[in-house]
């Protein structure tokens, strides 16, 4: 593929009665890692959800292209089948649906092919090994009774199993203890480095970025991209906060 993987042009979006994102432009090429930072309530999760196709958010202007195709009107399932993924800031609990059968069904349905069980089990084991997850997790109901950190690990487990082309990570590092950040980072690193996956990392901290190569950094303030730069922008925000960007 020659063009960019994700191309967002002049995107405005919001909920019923309020526009939360204004004229966003964003281009992510295959294998690139972009970081999205910004103060609380700036619209980062809104952007992630809009890109992923959450029907709670309506696009009021602009287009979203993925792999050269206009996906602005597509459902989330179609976007996922094309290779998009989002690790949720607050993963939902689904009683009665085990983590394993969820992942299995997701692979089967999104690929439209029957699953090779033996191969699946092997991959699942390997991914859980990287994430240091106990084997018993796969039998538990999806996210039900999982601690905050466990939910995030389960998200990255799904990332590794579904193997998308672009993963949006919405604060995957928040609420994780020091060791867990390291473990989860290892999973993301596997995805970035071994599989060449592209990332849009939404974060408030830099710990998760330590082991990742960062191509671009965007600062989102009040629903607009206030600045775009290289990896050095992350350190700058770390030192100076968002003050510089929020001044009118």
């Amino acid at each position: 593929m020659s063009g960019p993987l994700l191309q967002v042009s002049d995107l405005s979006a919001g909920i019923e009665g309020a526009e939360l994102l204004h004229h966003i432009d964003l281009t992510i090429r295959e294998g690139e890692t972009h970081v999205l930072m910004g103060p609380n309530g700036a619209g980062k999760s809104t952007l992630g959800n809009t890109l992923m196709g959450n029907p709670a958010y309506h696009v009021t202007g602009g287009r979203i292209f993925f792999g050269g195709e206009d996906i602005t009107e597509l459902g989330a399932d179609k976007r996922a089948a094309m290779g998009m993924f989002m690790s949720f800031q607050n993963p939902l609990e689904i009683p009665g649906l085990s983590l394993e059968s969820f992942i299995r069904n997701a692979i089967r349905i999104s690929t439209g092919k029957p699953l090779k069980i033996f191969q699946f089990k092997k991959q699942l084991e390997a991914a859980m090994e990287i994430l240091q997850m106990d084997a018993s997790y796969v039998e538990r109901d999806l996210n039900v009774g999982f601690s905050g950190g466990e939910k995030k690990k389960a998200e990255i487990l799904q990332l590794l199993m579904l193997d998308p082309k672009l993963a949006i990570l919405d604060e995957t590092d928040s609420g994780l203890d020091v060791d867990a950040v390291r473990t989860v980072s290892r999973g993301i690193e596997e995805y970035q480095k071994e599989r060449g996956g592209a990332l849009l990392v939404i974060t408030h901290s830099t710990r998760i970025l330590d082991s990742l190569h960062v191509d671009r950094t965007h600062v989102l303030v009040k629903g607009r991209i206030a600045e775009t730069g290289g990896a050095e922008l992350v350190d700058e925000i770390n030192r100076g906060g968002f003050e510089r960007f929020t001044e009118e």
Binding site: I94, A106, I109
Partner: peptide, 16 residues
């Protein structure tokens, strides 16, 4: 609806 979206974001169609 959020739960439905969560499953859909993994490639599962709405009905399923």
């Amino acid at each position: 609806d959020e739960a439905v979206f969560y499953l859909m974001s993994r490639g599962i169609d709405e009905a399923q």
